[in-house]
Amino acid sequence: MATTTTRPTTTDRPRVRRGRWFAEVGWKYPVAAVVIVYAAFPLVYVLSAAVARTGTLTGSTELFRTFSTANFEALNASRFWTWGVNSLVVGGATAIGSVLMGAAAAYAFSRFSFRGRRGGLTALLIIQMFPQMLAFVSIFLLLLALGDVVPALGLNSTVALICVYLGGALGTNTFLMYGFFNTVPRELDEAARIDGATHAQIYWTIILRLVTPILAVVGLLSFIATFGEFILARVILTSPERWTLAVGMYGWVSQELNANWGLFAAGAVVAALPVLLLFLALQKYIVGGLTAGSVKG
């Protein structure tokens, strides 16, 4: 789109234009290449281990010495796909819940002045810093007690796991969004309020639309965080059919000497795909505003 607008002018003085093109845009391609190498090259090891027959991860600097799809086929023999579905469910539910709860709280902190607002924000920030060393015991005890009353919130329940994750959602995500809500001019809500809009209407129809990029970012971040979490998940989910990918795959390598890195690597490669695809899909929302703005400009 942007290139079509510059092309007519390039014909005038090609060399100067090309030089300027490189100074403004062109140099970014080699930079991107360097960054991609930096980001991806350690993961080449993972790919190499995934397609290798030997089960080691970092045993050698010679990569891709053998090629076999055995590890990927072995995934089918394991519960990998069941775990994958569980992970998508837990990750998706947590992401949606986190976005809804975090955005609502951020709206309140950003738009209303009330007693304890500043204190509440500070408290939210500080609570996240608590070292959760004993979480594995305390969450177990809590769910044990809850499960007696509400079986759906007991141990080995996916719903309970999602609730536990949502318990941690407010802190991080409110903070992520709070700052962005502040960048939305207040005049907008005031104008709407004068026109008779309720606070709920302002929230749902004005604010949320303006902060779509950050909603997408928060959704993605909490999806990724949930997707990779295994410390609480392995305490809560006791039967393998309910495990998430992180719990199940961690089990493949948790025994240092019996670690099946080949299978783990294949699983990690496959498991990375939904994250990358989700990002690819969400980019429209994350970066969408810019494209529209630049067209206008």
Partner: peptide, 14 residues
């Protein structure tokens, strides 16, 4: 109940 071998001791104690 299937568990990771490495987790069993701590979970059993707890």
């Amino acid at each position: 109940v299937q568990k990771n071998f490495e987790d069993i001791r701590a979970d059993f104690l707890a």
